[in-house]
C-alpha cells in the first residue's frame, strides 16, 4: 500500500516538474510547478515531517507560486514570454540525465540503505526549542534576509517620479 502511494506521488512530483518546464504557456507551467511542490510536501508527510510539509504548502504553494502567477499575468505579452529554447536542448538533456545516473549510481552503491529509521519522530516542540536556542542567530539572520528582500523588491518594482506609464 505504501509502495503504491510512493509511486503515485513520485510520478506526480517528477512528471509535473518536467511539465512545469515544458509547457508552452507559462501559466500552466506555474500550476504544474505547484503540483510538483505539493508532491514534495506529500513526501514530507510520508517522512514524518508534517510541520515542514505544512510550511512547504503555505510558503511555496500558497505564496511563491501565487506570486509567480501574478507576475506572469502582469507581464503577459506574447513576444516577451515565448522566448525559444536554445539549440542546447540535446546538451541539456544529456547533462541532466548524466547527473541523474551519476547521483543514482552513487547512492545505490553507497551504504545509505543501511541507515535505519528512528522510532520516535521529531515533535514541533523539539523543533521550536532548537530554533529558539541553538539556531537563534540564524533565525535573526533569516529575518534580516526577508527584510532586505522586501525592501529591495519594493524599490525595484516601484515607479520613479517622472517615469511615464
Amino acid at each position: 500500500m505504501t509502495d503504491a502511494i510512493f509511486i503515485a506521488v513520485s510520478v506526480l512530483t517528477v512528471g509535473s516538474a518536467i511539465l512545469a518546464l515544458e509547457f508552452k504557456e507559462l501559466i500552466y507551467g506555474a500550476i504544474a510547478l505547484a503540483a510538483s511542490l505539493l508532491g514534495v510536501a506529500m513526501f514530507f508527510v510520508m517522512l514524518d515531517a508534517s510541520f515542514v510539509a505544512m510550511f512547504q504548502v503555505t510558503v511555496y504553494v500558497g505564496a511563491v507560486v501565487v506570486l509567480v502567477i501574478f507576475t506572469i499575468m502582469l507581464v503577459r505579452r506574447e513576444a516577451w514570454l515565448q522566448v525559444k529554447d536554445g539549440s542546447r536542448k540535446v546538451l541539456g538533456a544529456i547533462l541532466g540525465l548524466s547527473i541523474i545516473l551519476a547521483l543514482g549510481a552513487l547512492y545505490l552503491q553507497s551504504g545509505l540503505s543501511t541507515l535505519q529509521t528512528k522510532e520516535n519522530s521529531i515533535s514541533i516542540k523539539q523543533l521550536s526549542e532548537e530554533m529558539l536556542t541553538y539556531y537563534s542567530p540564524a533565525l535573526i539572520v533569516v529575518g534580516l534576509t526577508l527584510a532586505g528582500s522586501v525592501i529591495g523588491a519594493l524599490i525595484l518594482s516601484k515607479r520613479e517620479k517622472g517615469e511615464e506609464e
Binding site: L21, G92, I99
Partner: peptide, 13 residues
C-alpha cells in the same frame, strides 16, 4: 536526484 537532473536540464535549455 531526478529532480536535480530536471532542474539542471531546465537551466541549460
Amino acid at each position: 536526484a531526478i529532480l536535480v537532473g530536471i532542474g539542471i536540464y531546465g537551466l541549460v535549455v
